[in-house]
């Protein structure tokens, strides 16, 4: 019997949903904070790393994002959607800000790696680092992204991971702004269709 170091208390926390954990953060409950980190730390780290492409900066950023939640749990407002969405957006925006600040400092490094087609992970990968719900979503979005026409996928990734505005994407790809806008809208429309029913029924 290998019980590892999973105390009954820890196990109890892992059964709490995000909202319940967050509520405990406002009482400065460190164990609740640990549970949230263990739930989302790998995802936030991986997403941020993908954007900033530097393990040290990525780690600093993960620390900053999580400590911000610890210090100001109220900055997440439940009415604005679920916690995981909010957390990912905060981390993504922070990472993109960093990349933008860096590219202002070093003008020459701005060529976005998103230009090349990215190898997507297989949607069959069963990733133990994610909650079951996020793992489901992951499969769906990867599948949907693979099915997008390449030019739509590219503009969406340039925006989301590359941190470029529509105007900047148009410039980089030497495409009219209208074309970029249309591709983003069409692509997002398809992703929305692929994800939405699942997102709705995925609520437990």
């Amino acid at each position: 019997m290998s019980s590892e170091d999973v105390s009954p208390e820890k196990a109890a926390y892992s059964r709490l949903d995000d909202e319940a954990l967050l509520q405990r953060l406002s009482y400065r409950d460190l164990e609740a904070f640990r549970s949230l980190y263990d739930r989302y730390g790998d995802l936030v780290y991986s997403a941020v790393l993908r954007i900033v492409r530097d393990v040290h900066i990525a780690q600093d950023m993960v620390q900053e994002v999580f400590l911000r939640i610890w210090r100001r749990p109220e900055s997440y407002v439940a009415q604005r959607g679920r916690f995981s969405t909010w957390l990912i957006s905060v981390a993504r925006n922070r990472a993109v800000d960093e990349v933008r600040a860096r590219s202002r400092r070093y003008r020459h490094e701005t060529a976005s790696p998103e230009q090349q087609e990215r190898e997507l992970p297989s949607s069959d990968d069963n990733d133990p680092a994610l909650t079951a719900e996020l793992a489901d979503q992951r499969q769906l979005i990867i599948k949907a992204l693979v099915e997008l026409p390449l030019e739509q996928r590219r503009v969406i990734e340039l925006a989301y991971f590359g941190g470029l505005t529509q105007q900047e994407i148009a410039q980089q790809l030497s495409q009219p702004l209208g074309t970029v806008k249309t591709r983003i809208r069409l692509g997002m429309q398809k992703l929305r269709t692929a994800l939405t029913p699942k997102l709705r029924t995925g609520d437990c």
Binding site: G41, D42, L43, V44, Y45, S46, A47, L49, R50, V55, Q59, V62, G81, R82, S84, T85, W86, I88, S89, A91, R92, L120, P121, D127, A129, L130, L134, Q137, R138, L140, I141, I142, L145, I156, E157, Y160, F161, M188, L191, R192, L195, T196, L199
Partner: peptide
């Protein structure tokens, strides 16, 4: 709704353990 879709894009990265 679109914010949820956008955030889901973060799930398409290779998930690796944070150090």
């Amino acid at each position: 709704e679109v914010q949820r879709v956008a955030a889901a894009l973060a799930l398409t990265v290779d998930i690796e353990p944070a150090p």
